[in-house]
């Protein structure tokens, strides 16, 4: 049960970082933490059903639910592609504005 609260803490940490951090790269880091927290949550809930990894050999019983693992693999890959795209946008924004602070960028683009 404590683990559940800790995972919720991680989830809130990710959201707080996305809302509060001014730096664009920090925002993407926070997005990564947010995504990881959901992945950990799913794997954690799935792992409570058994006690061995779902690798089917003879004599293996009491496996954990394999479906969450398969789904979370997909989610991890989607997360990395989003990160890559966001970072490439950041490089382009930096070339134009010479800053990574969202506050300054919004101020500059309003004056254009």
């Amino acid at each position: 049960m404590i683990a559940g609260y800790l995972i919720i803490g991680l989830f809130i940490l990710g959201i707080w970082g996305m809302v509060k951090k001014d730096n664009l790269i920090k925002k993407v880091i926070a997005l990564n933490i947010f995504n990881s927290s959901i992945v950990i949550f799913f794997i954690y809930l799935g792992s409570r059903t058994g006690s061995t990894a779902p690798i089917m050999e003879r004599g293996i019983k009491d496996i954990v639910d394999p479906l969450p693992q398969a789904l979370m693999l997909t989610a991890i890959v989607i997360g990395i592609s989003l990160t890559a795209l966001a970072l490439s946008f950041i490089i382009k924004i930096y070339r134009r504005h010479k800053t990574l602070s969202i506050y300054k960028i919004q101020k500059k683009s309003e004056h254009e």
Binding site: M18, F34, N35, S109, E112
Partner: peptide, 24 residues
């Protein structure tokens, strides 16, 4: 264009947050 990249970046962040909720 810088404006469209900035708009797209905003969309990316907000929408990824939403998709996180969807996954939840």
């Amino acid at each position: 264009k810088t404006k469209s990249i900035l708009a797209s970046f905003n969309y990316l962040l907000i929408s990824s947050l939403g998709m996180g909720f969807f996954l939840l």
